[in-house]
């Protein structure tokens, strides 16, 4: 690792940091910048006065209004992706002190509690950088198409209610359905690698989020109709068998999606599917 990060970010440490946060301090934001695809990256540091309850987004907003580095050089506002700022849209994911997470829910007090502490912001590494902290996550959505992550309804006409469902199944599906396609699980996955060439997306590791979505729809009474299609895709190169069981995905998932259980479930379904297909020929 080229960079050493000052603070570990376990939940306990973050809470402890909060209690010793100093009021009226400044934080040093070290931002990895890049003007565009193929351009060289560079580091820029900004001194930002910390307000109570400030998060990384607020720091970036401050920088946008005052784009001057610690060295006194005028620069441009930092480009970053953001949406709801409530940790439900998944847009503002980036590496904070080296680890993937949403910047909206990242409190400065938890990461840089003392005067002059540094917080490091970098773009995700598994997706091509567009500019600065903004990366192109199109592949992540393409994966959802790969596993046909939808219920094949007959149409939007009034055809009565959907299938009944037990509260237990609903709860399981809800847990998976909270996935906001942020990409943390892919960023942290040692098996998921950056593929700038779109042509290779169909054959490179699809990642935990899409495997979990396949399980979500395989578990729905109508969604099941496409179960074999989904499993066949996940038996292909880049499918579920590419998982290396590092289980980082489930630990970095901000929504607590049971990703490793999904991987195992799909593993089971694929096992059964391959035997059935071998013996039935279908």
């Amino acid at each position: 690792m080229a960079i050493a990060y000052a603070h570990e970010s376990t939940a306990d440490q973050r809470r402890a940091n909060r209690t010793r946060a100093v009021e009226g301090r400044t934080v040093l934001c070290r931002v990895r910048r890049c003007d565009g695809p193929g351009k060289a990256g560079r580091w820029e540091s900004f001194k930002v006065p910390v307000e109570p309850g400030m998060n990384v987004i607020a720091c970036l907003k401050h920088i946008a209004q005052n784009p001057v580095t610690v060295d006194g050089n005028t620069t441009t506002p930092v480009v970053y992706d953001a949406g709801c700022l409530e940790e439900v849209c998944g847009a503002c994911t980036m590496l904070i002190n080296g680890m993937a997470r949403q910047s909206c829910s990242c409190l400065i007090d938890e990461y840089a509690p003392l005067e002059g502490d540094t917080i490091t912001l970098e773009p995700m590494t598994k997706f091509p950088v567009i500019r600065d902290l903004w990366v192109d996550r199109a592949r992540l959505f393409q994966s959802l198409t790969r596993v046909k992550a939808w219920v094949p309804i007959d149409g939007t006409y009034a055809l009565g209610a959907g299938p009944k469902e037990s509260p237990e199944v609903q709860q399981d599906r809800y847990d998976m359905s909270e996935c906001m396609s942020c990409g943390c699980c892919l960023e942290a996955c040692p098996q998921f690698t950056i593929e700038p060439d779109e042509a290779s997306w169909d054959t490179s590791f699809i990642g935990a989020h899409a495997i979990s979505q396949a399980r979500l729809f395989n578990g729905h009474a109508t969604g099941k109709e496409l179960k074999n299609d989904r499993l066949d895709e996940l038996m292909n190169p880049g499918g579920v068998s590419e998982c290396g069981n590092a289980q980082n995905c489930v630990k970095v998932c901000p929504k607590g999606v049971p990703l490793t259980e999904s991987i195992a479930t799909i593993g089971r379904q694929v096992t059964i599917r391959s035997f059935t297909r071998f013996f039935s020929g279908k």
Partner: peptide, 19 residues
């Protein structure tokens, strides 16, 4: 609501599996 239900929205359920 029926349509969304058919699309697979995980609406909360009662013990009798109704919405």
């Amino acid at each position: 609501i029926d349509l969304l239900d058919r699309m697979g929205v995980p609406f909360n359920r009662t013990p009798e599996q109704n919405r």
